[in-house]
Design a protein around this nucleic acid. Structure first.
Lengths: 129, 129
DNA sequence: CTTGACCTTCCAGTGACTGGAACCCTCATG
DNA sequence: CATGAGGGTTCCAGTCACTGGAAGGTCAAG
């Protein structure tokens, strides 16, 4: 299967698939004309990568997950630990974003939003409190 | 004032300050020995940048905010619009992260987390439903 | 005069792609 | 048989916002 078909089946752009090969996440065979030739297992790996990336795992985490995916002797606790770690990380990000949001919201609330230059948002950014 | 002092006063690392000069966000004078020489207005700009960056504005947004900051004829509505846009953007990010979080949480809930290989998280990533 | 802290420039790397140029392969059509 | 479309290939550069490090210049203190 050529890269175009693999892209369609994995829901990843060809460029990304080549990149994943460059960083050794997939190792497709080559046809005689030099084209990459993806087998079913390759497609499974690509789909796995697409899903885990879209769930917010970094490339290195995906590499770990992929090795667990292909390890018949894996312990599900290892996978669960990664997932829980990621959840904690997401929670931290959400909290930080909500802090920013609240600050911005409070500033915007106090801003008249008219054609005059006086602006509490600018004042805050400038450190004038 | 040398870059070290400017860094201390603006709460930005010297490397970052040099980078901000490279992308033309600040234009400090130069002393005879070639050292950068920051005046009070430069420090204000740097502090402004530090604060707006830490509130989640991109460099280009900071550039806009900075030009508003220094525009005596600005309309506060322009600043408010930027802030509200950023709030919407943050809300979108938070929602997306919470979606991921919930998905991961649901998967982790169903995972025994023991030494057996059977794992709903891996199954989901592999597309086995 | 030397030491050490500070400053300078320039180059390279980060993460995860993405765009583009220049070129090759294959197949259908005129 | 030439040609054009629509694949594929490699390699280089760019993104964003820094950050690290090397090689060297400057300055104040001891």
């Amino acid at each position: 299967m050529n890269i175009g078909a693999a892209a369609e089946r994995s829901n990843l752009p060809p460029k990304t698939i080549r990149y994943y090969e460059e960083i050794k996440l997939v190792k497709p065979a080559r046809a005689q004309n030099g084209y990459r030739d993806y087998c079913d297992a390759d497609i499974h790996r690509l789909r796995f990568l697409q899903r885990s990336r879209s769930l917010g795992f970094s490339i290195e985490e995906c590499r770990t997950l992929l090795s667990l995916y292909e390890d018949e002797n894996r312990a599900s606790s290892d996978v669960k630990a990664l997932a829980l770690e990621k959840i904690t990380e997401i929670d931290r990000k959400v909290e930080e974003l909500q802090g920013l949001r609240n600050t911005l919201h409070a500033l915007a609330e106090n801003c008249h939003g008219n054609d005059k230059p006086d602006c509490p948002i600018i004042n805050d950014l400038a450190g004038k409190i």
